[in-house]
Protein backbone atom coordinates (compact mmCIF):
# COMPACT_ATOMS: atom_id res chain seq x y z
CA UNK A 1 0.00 0.00 0.00
CA UNK A 2 1.45 3.33 -1.02
CA UNK A 3 1.95 6.15 1.48
CA UNK A 4 -0.64 8.25 -0.37
CA UNK A 5 -3.28 5.55 -0.11
CA UNK A 6 -2.53 5.05 3.57
CA UNK A 7 -2.75 8.77 4.23
CA UNK A 8 -6.01 8.98 2.32
CA UNK A 9 -7.51 6.19 4.43
CA UNK A 10 -6.27 7.46 7.77
CA UNK A 11 -8.95 10.13 8.34
CA UNK A 12 -11.68 7.60 7.57
CA UNK A 13 -10.20 5.09 9.99
CA UNK A 14 -10.03 7.75 12.68
CA UNK A 15 -13.54 8.92 11.88
CA UNK A 16 -15.06 5.45 11.71
CA UNK A 17 -16.11 5.14 15.40
CA UNK A 18 -17.89 8.50 15.23
CA UNK A 19 -19.45 7.69 11.86
CA UNK A 20 -20.62 4.31 13.14
CA UNK A 21 -22.18 5.99 16.19
CA UNK A 22 -23.94 8.58 14.04
CA UNK A 23 -25.18 5.90 11.66
CA UNK A 24 -26.44 3.61 14.42
CA UNK A 25 -27.82 6.20 16.82
CA UNK A 26 -29.11 8.83 14.42
CA UNK A 27 -29.42 7.65 10.85
CA UNK A 28 -30.89 4.18 11.48
CA UNK A 29 -33.51 5.41 14.03
CA UNK A 30 -34.38 8.23 11.65
CA UNK A 31 -34.95 5.69 8.88
CA UNK A 32 -37.23 3.74 11.25
CA UNK A 33 -39.23 6.92 11.80
CA UNK A 34 -39.44 7.51 8.05
CA UNK A 35 -40.71 3.95 7.51
CA UNK A 36 -43.17 4.27 10.41
CA UNK A 37 -44.64 7.44 8.95
CA UNK A 38 -46.02 5.40 6.03
CA UNK A 39 -47.76 2.84 8.26
CA UNK A 40 -51.23 3.18 9.73
CA UNK A 41 -52.68 2.94 13.21
CA UNK A 42 -55.51 0.42 13.49
CA UNK A 43 -58.53 0.83 15.76
CA UNK A 44 -56.90 -1.25 18.53
CA UNK A 45 -53.74 0.85 18.49
CA UNK A 46 -51.68 -1.74 16.63
CA UNK A 47 -49.71 -0.67 13.56
CA UNK A 48 -50.69 -1.71 10.07
CA UNK A 49 -47.57 -2.27 8.02
CA UNK A 50 -47.63 -1.00 4.45
CA UNK A 51 -47.12 2.07 2.35
CA UNK A 52 -49.86 4.57 3.06
CA UNK A 53 -49.75 8.31 2.50
CA UNK A 54 -52.63 9.03 4.91
CA UNK A 55 -50.45 10.39 7.71
CA UNK A 56 -48.51 12.67 5.41
CA UNK A 57 -51.70 13.80 3.76
CA UNK A 58 -53.17 14.67 7.15
CA UNK A 59 -50.01 16.33 8.47
CA UNK A 60 -49.54 18.47 5.37
CA UNK A 61 -53.10 19.45 4.58
CA UNK A 62 -54.85 19.74 7.96
CA UNK A 63 -54.90 23.43 9.01
CA UNK A 64 -54.74 22.32 12.67
CA UNK A 65 -51.11 21.18 12.29
CA UNK A 66 -50.22 24.18 10.13
CA UNK A 67 -51.61 26.62 12.72
CA UNK A 68 -49.80 24.98 15.63
CA UNK A 69 -46.58 24.92 13.59
CA UNK A 70 -46.89 28.64 12.84
CA UNK A 71 -47.66 29.34 16.50
CA UNK A 72 -44.61 27.28 17.51
CA UNK A 73 -42.33 29.18 15.12
CA UNK A 74 -43.76 32.47 16.39
CA UNK A 75 -43.10 31.56 20.04
CA UNK A 76 -39.59 30.35 19.15
CA UNK A 77 -38.92 33.61 17.26
CA UNK A 78 -40.12 35.81 20.15
CA UNK A 79 -38.02 33.75 22.56
CA UNK A 80 -34.96 34.13 20.32
CA UNK A 81 -35.40 37.91 20.06
CA UNK A 82 -35.83 38.26 23.83
CA UNK A 83 -32.76 36.09 24.39
CA UNK A 84 -30.75 38.23 21.95
CA UNK A 85 -31.83 41.49 23.61
CA UNK A 86 -31.09 40.16 27.09
CA UNK A 87 -28.06 38.09 26.12
CA UNK A 88 -26.02 40.61 24.19
CA UNK A 89 -25.35 43.07 27.05
CA UNK A 90 -24.53 40.18 29.38
CA UNK A 91 -22.14 38.60 26.88
CA UNK A 92 -20.54 42.01 26.24
CA UNK A 93 -20.08 42.56 29.95
CA UNK A 94 -18.45 39.15 30.39
CA UNK A 95 -16.20 39.55 27.33
CA UNK A 96 -14.99 42.98 28.42
CA UNK A 97 -14.59 42.21 32.14
CA UNK A 98 -10.99 41.72 33.17
CA UNK A 99 -10.38 39.77 36.36
CA UNK A 100 -13.62 37.89 37.01
CA UNK A 101 -14.35 36.44 33.57
CA UNK A 102 -13.94 32.85 34.73
CA UNK A 103 -16.31 33.36 37.67
CA UNK A 104 -18.90 35.01 35.42
CA UNK A 105 -18.70 32.15 32.95
CA UNK A 106 -19.04 29.68 35.79
CA UNK A 107 -22.14 31.53 37.01
CA UNK A 108 -23.51 31.33 33.48
CA UNK A 109 -23.03 27.57 33.45
CA UNK A 110 -24.51 27.04 36.93
CA UNK A 111 -28.13 26.58 35.78
CA UNK A 112 -27.05 23.60 33.67
CA UNK A 113 -26.25 21.76 36.89
CA UNK A 114 -29.94 21.74 37.79
CA UNK A 115 -32.53 19.68 35.91
CA UNK A 116 -34.32 21.62 33.17
CA UNK A 117 -37.69 20.42 34.49
CA UNK A 118 -36.92 21.63 38.01
CA UNK A 119 -35.76 24.98 36.65
CA UNK A 120 -39.02 25.26 34.71
CA UNK A 121 -41.14 24.27 37.69
CA UNK A 122 -39.37 26.80 39.90
CA UNK A 123 -41.40 29.52 38.15
CA UNK A 124 -44.53 28.14 39.82
CA UNK A 125 -43.01 29.02 43.19
CA UNK A 126 -42.01 32.45 41.94
CA UNK A 127 -45.07 33.54 39.94
CA UNK A 128 -47.80 31.42 41.51
CA UNK A 129 -50.77 32.88 43.38
CA UNK A 130 -49.00 32.13 46.64
CA UNK A 131 -45.55 32.45 45.09
CA UNK A 132 -42.69 34.75 46.01
CA UNK A 133 -43.59 37.60 43.65
CA UNK A 134 -47.23 37.83 44.67
CA UNK A 135 -46.26 37.55 48.35
CA UNK A 136 -43.82 40.44 47.93
CA UNK A 137 -46.39 42.66 46.18
CA UNK A 138 -49.01 41.81 48.81
CA UNK A 139 -46.66 42.51 51.72
CA UNK A 140 -45.68 45.87 50.18
CA UNK A 141 -49.36 46.75 49.81
CA UNK A 142 -49.03 47.25 46.04
CA UNK A 143 -51.82 44.75 45.35
CA UNK A 144 -54.71 43.64 47.53
CA UNK A 145 -55.29 40.30 45.81
CA UNK A 146 -52.80 37.94 44.14
CA UNK A 147 -52.38 38.42 40.40
CA UNK A 148 -52.78 35.41 38.11
CA UNK A 149 -49.44 35.39 36.28
CA UNK A 150 -48.95 31.74 35.38
CA UNK A 151 -50.26 29.40 32.68
CA UNK A 152 -50.32 31.59 29.59
CA UNK A 153 -48.15 32.16 26.52
CA UNK A 154 -46.07 34.81 28.29
CA UNK A 155 -44.99 32.33 30.97
CA UNK A 156 -44.16 29.77 28.29
CA UNK A 157 -41.85 32.33 26.65
CA UNK A 158 -40.43 33.24 30.05
CA UNK A 159 -39.64 29.58 30.74
CA UNK A 160 -38.02 29.19 27.33
CA UNK A 161 -35.92 32.33 27.80
CA UNK A 162 -34.81 31.01 31.18
CA UNK A 163 -33.77 27.75 29.50
CA UNK A 164 -32.14 29.20 26.38
CA UNK A 165 -30.49 32.43 27.51
CA UNK A 166 -27.16 30.79 28.48
CA UNK A 167 -26.85 29.33 24.95
CA UNK A 168 -27.28 32.79 23.46
CA UNK A 169 -24.84 34.45 25.88
CA UNK A 170 -22.17 31.80 25.30
CA UNK A 171 -22.34 32.15 21.52
CA UNK A 172 -22.20 35.94 21.58
CA UNK A 173 -19.43 35.84 24.19
CA UNK A 174 -17.27 33.55 22.00
CA UNK A 175 -17.74 35.96 19.12
CA UNK A 176 -17.00 39.09 21.17
CA UNK A 177 -14.02 37.50 22.85
CA UNK A 178 -12.42 36.94 19.46
CA UNK A 179 -12.65 40.62 18.46
CA UNK A 180 -9.45 42.61 18.90
CA UNK A 181 -10.25 45.47 21.29
CA UNK A 182 -7.68 47.60 19.46
CA UNK A 183 -10.22 47.91 16.64
CA UNK A 184 -12.55 49.89 18.90
CA UNK A 185 -9.62 52.03 20.06
CA UNK A 186 -8.69 52.66 16.41
CA UNK A 187 -12.27 53.74 15.64
CA UNK A 188 -12.22 56.07 18.64
CA UNK A 189 -8.91 57.58 17.53
CA UNK A 190 -10.48 58.26 14.13
CA UNK A 191 -13.22 60.34 15.76
CA UNK A 192 -15.96 57.81 16.44
CA UNK A 193 -17.75 57.96 19.78
CA UNK A 194 -17.83 54.80 21.92
CA UNK A 195 -21.40 54.13 20.79
CA UNK A 196 -20.49 54.63 17.11
CA UNK A 197 -17.45 52.39 17.50
CA UNK A 198 -19.68 49.70 18.96
CA UNK A 199 -22.34 50.05 16.26
CA UNK A 200 -19.91 50.19 13.32
CA UNK A 201 -17.12 47.86 14.49
CA UNK A 202 -18.00 45.54 17.37
CA UNK A 203 -21.61 44.76 16.55
CA UNK A 204 -21.00 43.77 12.88
CA UNK A 205 -18.05 41.62 13.88
CA UNK A 206 -20.10 39.86 16.58
CA UNK A 207 -23.08 39.17 14.32
CA UNK A 208 -21.98 35.61 13.48
CA UNK A 209 -22.08 34.79 17.21
CA UNK A 210 -25.48 36.43 17.55
CA UNK A 211 -26.75 34.47 14.56
CA UNK A 212 -25.36 31.20 15.91
CA UNK A 213 -26.98 31.84 19.30
CA UNK A 214 -30.19 32.79 17.54
CA UNK A 215 -30.22 29.57 15.54
CA UNK A 216 -29.59 27.44 18.63
CA UNK A 217 -32.27 29.22 20.65
CA UNK A 218 -34.77 29.00 17.81
CA UNK A 219 -34.22 25.32 17.07
CA UNK A 220 -34.21 24.27 20.73
CA UNK A 221 -37.19 26.51 21.51
CA UNK A 222 -39.27 25.23 18.61
CA UNK A 223 -38.61 21.62 19.62
CA UNK A 224 -39.54 21.85 23.29
CA UNK A 225 -42.67 20.36 24.88
CA UNK A 226 -41.94 20.40 28.62
CA UNK A 227 -42.19 24.18 29.03
CA UNK A 228 -45.71 24.57 27.55
CA UNK A 229 -46.78 21.48 29.49
CA UNK A 230 -45.64 22.93 32.83
CA UNK A 231 -46.13 26.67 32.34
CA UNK A 232 -48.76 26.86 29.61
CA UNK A 233 -52.53 27.13 29.81
CA UNK A 234 -55.03 24.84 28.09
CA UNK A 235 -54.33 26.29 24.63
CA UNK A 236 -50.58 26.90 24.89
CA UNK A 237 -49.35 23.81 23.08
CA UNK A 238 -46.37 23.71 20.74
CA UNK A 239 -45.73 21.37 17.83
CA UNK A 240 -43.65 18.93 19.89
CA UNK A 241 -46.67 18.51 22.17
CA UNK A 242 -48.62 17.22 19.17
CA UNK A 243 -45.89 14.66 18.49
CA UNK A 244 -45.97 13.64 22.16
CA UNK A 245 -49.75 13.30 22.13
CA UNK A 246 -49.82 11.31 18.90
CA UNK A 247 -47.19 8.86 20.11
CA UNK A 248 -47.93 8.59 23.83
CA UNK A 249 -51.61 9.46 24.33
CA UNK A 250 -53.10 8.26 21.05
CA UNK A 251 -50.56 5.47 20.48
CA UNK A 252 -50.49 6.64 16.88
CA UNK A 253 -46.81 6.15 16.14
CA UNK A 254 -47.22 6.47 12.37
CA UNK A 255 -48.86 9.92 12.60
CA UNK A 256 -46.42 10.94 15.35
CA UNK A 257 -43.54 9.93 13.06
CA UNK A 258 -44.91 12.01 10.18
CA UNK A 259 -45.36 15.02 12.49
CA UNK A 260 -41.88 14.71 13.96
CA UNK A 261 -40.37 14.48 10.47
CA UNK A 262 -42.36 17.54 9.47
CA UNK A 263 -40.89 19.53 12.36
CA UNK A 264 -37.44 18.15 11.58
CA UNK A 265 -37.79 19.24 7.94
CA UNK A 266 -38.80 22.79 8.88
CA UNK A 267 -36.00 23.19 11.42
CA UNK A 268 -33.54 21.42 9.10
CA UNK A 269 -34.36 23.87 6.33
CA UNK A 270 -33.64 26.70 8.72
CA UNK A 271 -30.25 25.23 9.62
CA UNK A 272 -29.44 24.79 5.93
CA UNK A 273 -30.29 28.43 5.19
CA UNK A 274 -28.09 29.47 8.09
CA UNK A 275 -25.28 27.27 6.86
CA UNK A 276 -25.63 28.63 3.32
CA UNK A 277 -25.15 32.23 4.40
CA UNK A 278 -23.18 32.09 7.64
CA UNK A 279 -21.58 28.64 7.83
CA UNK A 280 -21.55 26.27 10.78
CA UNK A 281 -18.08 27.21 12.01
CA UNK A 282 -19.33 29.92 14.38
CA UNK A 283 -21.95 27.60 15.82
CA UNK A 284 -19.31 24.96 16.52
CA UNK A 285 -17.18 27.56 18.33
CA UNK A 286 -20.14 28.55 20.47
CA UNK A 287 -20.98 24.97 21.31
CA UNK A 288 -17.33 24.20 22.04
Amino acid sequence: MSIETREARQPWILLSPALAAVALLLFVPLMFIVVYSFWLRTATGADQVGFYLDNWNEALTDPFYRDILISTLRIAAITTIVCAIMGYPSAYFIARSRGNKAILLLLLMLPFWISYIIRTMSWINILGVSGAFNSLLLSLGIISEPIQMLYNEATVILGLVHFLLPFMILNIYVSLDGIDTNLEDAANSLGATKWEAFLQVTLPLSLPGLAAGGLLCFVLGAGTYITPLVLGGPRDAMFANLVFEAIITQLNWPLGSALSLMLLAVLGALVMIYNRYLGMAQLMKGLG
Binding site: I68, E245, Q250
Partner: peptide
Protein backbone atom coordinates in the same frame (compact mmCIF):
# COMPACT_ATOMS: atom_id res chain seq x y z
CA UNK B 1 -64.32 5.70 20.79
CA UNK B 2 -60.68 5.84 21.84
CA UNK B 3 -59.08 6.60 18.48
CA UNK B 4 -61.64 9.24 17.55
CA UNK B 5 -62.17 10.96 20.89
CA UNK B 6 -58.53 11.09 22.00
CA UNK B 7 -57.68 12.82 18.73
CA UNK B 8 -60.64 15.18 18.89
CA UNK B 9 -59.81 16.12 22.46
CA UNK B 10 -56.23 16.90 21.38
CA UNK B 11 -57.70 19.50 19.03
CA UNK B 12 -60.44 20.83 21.30
CA UNK B 13 -57.84 21.29 24.03
CA UNK B 14 -55.87 23.60 21.74
CA UNK B 15 -58.78 25.85 20.89
CA UNK B 16 -60.51 23.96 18.07
Amino acid sequence: HEADWSKTFGRVQKGY
